[in-house]
């Protein structure tokens, strides 16, 4: 490891929020395991993928990586040795992350407790275990895209990668763009159809509330991966970021029965 050679201006506190927004731990932390030490078996129709240890342990984690290795992994989907990652690692989304967010995320991950935990080999079924399968996926499905200019779109498509869970996949694991946000049964847990939920009449402020407190319009409290994502990620974004994210999701999952947002709080004379 190059000791203090890091000249990066990454902010670990901001990086922690990025990690929360991306729910990195949903895959990279095993149930009851040390944070980010990997080992969680992601069961898919293609086989079981074990998310690697991304703590800074020098031998079993990514302690030996340079920042360039990290960027290479997230932007190109290749290991430091040049091996392409399997599509279970949603790096297509990470190509859409800004330099600043990558630097912050890196700064944060460098600071988490290193854990010695040897990565388990993926148990992938034929033919998905072949290099042809990965090559096919990279050819047909992997696109590098620049970070979106719209803030909400950026958060949703880059670090938040909402569609990686909420959009169903095709036979080779690509996202079915025409069914964006219609929910999927894939790990780490089934995700609901946002277009249908929002179709029940969610307003912009309802979505913001969910991203802030985890409360749905009917008062239900969400659980699971999304709860962690709210607690560690979206609830710690700025209000304007949450509003932008909500506006983007609503724009992509149109609400045909939209109810107008309540009037801005007045003096209460309406009561």
């Amino acid at each position: 490891m190059e000791p203090a050679a890091e000249v990066l201006a990454g902010d670990p506190a901001r990086g922690e929020v990025i990690a929360g927004l991306g729910a990195c731990g949903a895959c990279h932390t095993a149930e009851g395991g040390e944070p980010f030490a990997g080992g969680y078996g992601i069961e898919t129709k293609f086989g079981t993928f074990f998310a690697p240890n991304i703590t800074p342990d020098a031998t079993t984690g990514i302690g030996g990586w340079s920042y360039d290795d990290f960027v290479h992994a997230l932007r190109d989907g290749r290991s430091p040795r040049g091996r392409p990652y399997v599509a279970a690692f949603p790096y297509a989304a990470y190509t859409r992350m800004s330099d600043a967010d990558l630097a912050d995320l890196w700064a944060y991950l460098r600071g988490v407790a290193p854990v010695e935990a040897v990565e388990r080999a993926n148990e992938v079924r034929w033919p998905y275990d072949t290099r042809f399968a990965t090559a096919a996926w990279r050819t047909f499905e992997f696109r590098r895209e620049p970070p979106a200019e719209d803030r909400g779109e950026y958060l949703a498509t880059g670090p938040g990668h909402c569609g990686e869970c909420h959009t169903p996949r095709n036979a080779i694991g690509g996202l079915r763009a025409r069914r964006e946000f219609q929910g999927a049964d894939d790990p780490p847990e089934p995700s609901p159809d946002l277009t249908a939920i929002i179709g029940e009449g969610w307003s912009q402020s309802d979505v913001v509330e969910l991203l802030t407190s985890g409360m749905a319009p009917d008062g239900d409290m969400i659980g699971g991966v999304m709860r962690g994502l709210v607690v560690d990620g979206t609830s710690r974004l700025s209000v304007s970021d949450r509003e932008a994210l909500a506006a983007y999701v609503l724009s992509r999952a149109p609400n045909r029965h939209a109810k107008p947002d309540a009037e801005p709080p007045s003096d209460g004379e309406d009561w």
Partner: peptide
């Protein structure tokens, strides 16, 4: 997904 309501909404 079959039931919209699911995670978010289902109170139940």
């Amino acid at each position: 997904m079959k039931r919209v309501v699911a995670v978010l909404v289902g109170l139940t």
